[in-house]
Amino acid sequence: MDNANTLLVRLKAYDARRGHVLRRYTYAGIKFQEERGWYRVVKPVADYLRTVHQLPSDTYSPLAFDVCTEAEAKALDATEADEAKTKRSASDELKLSPARPAGTLTTEDIPKQAVHTPEERDGRRSRREKEN
């Protein structure tokens, strides 16, 4: 099989939040598994897989496969590897991320200008009602 008539395909990584819910898919006797990564297939198989959606009955669901040339697949892998690396290291200048104080949050913890008495709230409500 020469590489000119083939493409690389892979099932997109499981991510329910984005609608990527397929973990395996079988077509033309080939069982595609998400964890296996890239498969080299002939162009007609790749062309079909390019149209497969995560939910077969929903044409608006995300596509199920990445279909690429070898160069595009290598670039995609490199991009994903860069994104997977830790963005911050211990030697970086890091701002403090303050934790919430332990215990229960009470009205005393809220700034005074944000606290409205029931009378103030009723006054605002009645003004709004008067405008309407």
Rank of each mutant, 00 (worst) to 15 (best):
M1Y: 14
D2C: 11
D2W: 12
D2N: 15
N3S: 12
N3I: 10
N3G: 09
A4I: 13
N5V: 15
T6K: 10
T6F: 08
L7I: 08
L8G: 03
L8K: 02
L8R: 03
R10Q: 06
L11K: 00
K12E: 03
K12W: 00
A13T: 12
Y14G: 06
Y14L: 14
D15N: 14
D15A: 09
R17H: 08
R18M: 13
R18P: 06
V21Q: 12
L22K: 07
L22E: 03
L22W: 00
Y25D: 07
T26K: 14
Y27K: 09
Y27P: 02
Y27S: 11
A28I: 08
A28W: 09
G29W: 07
G29Y: 08
G29C: 10
G29H: 07
G29R: 06
F32M: 03
F32R: 02
E34T: 11
E35R: 12
R36Q: 12
R36G: 04
G37F: 04
V41H: 02
K43H: 09
K43C: 02
P44S: 12
P44Q: 12
V45E: 07
Y48N: 06
Y48L: 09
V52T: 07
V52S: 07
V52Y: 05
V52L: 09
H53W: 07
H53L: 09
Q54E: 14
P56Q: 07
D58L: 12
D58Y: 09
T59Q: 11
Y60A: 13
Y60D: 13
L63E: 05
L63I: 07
L63P: 01
A64P: 00
A64M: 00
D66R: 02
V67H: 01
V67E: 03
V67C: 01
T69C: 03
E70K: 04
E70F: 02
E70G: 01
A71S: 13
A71E: 13
A71V: 11
A71G: 12
A71C: 10
A73F: 01
A73E: 01
K74N: 05
K74M: 07
A75C: 08
A78P: 00
A78R: 00
T79N: 03
E80W: 02
E80I: 01
A81E: 00
A84H: 03
A84W: 03
K85Q: 08
T86L: 15
T86D: 15
K87A: 14
K87F: 13
S89P: 04
S91Y: 09
D92L: 08
E93S: 12
E93P: 06
L94G: 05
L94A: 10
K95Q: 15
S97T: 15
S97G: 13
S97M: 15
P98W: 05
P98S: 10
A99N: 15
R100G: 11
P101R: 11
P101N: 10
P101W: 07
A102T: 12
G103W: 01
G103H: 03
L105F: 12
T106H: 05
T106S: 10
T106A: 07
T107P: 09
E108M: 11
D109V: 06
I110L: 10
I110A: 08
K112D: 12
K112I: 11
Q113N: 15
Q113H: 15
A114L: 14
V115T: 09
H116I: 03
H116T: 00
T117G: 05
T117V: 03
E119V: 06
E120F: 04
R125K: 11
R125L: 06
S126C: 04
S126G: 02
K130G: 02
E131Q: 13
N132K: 04
N132T: 01
N132L: 01
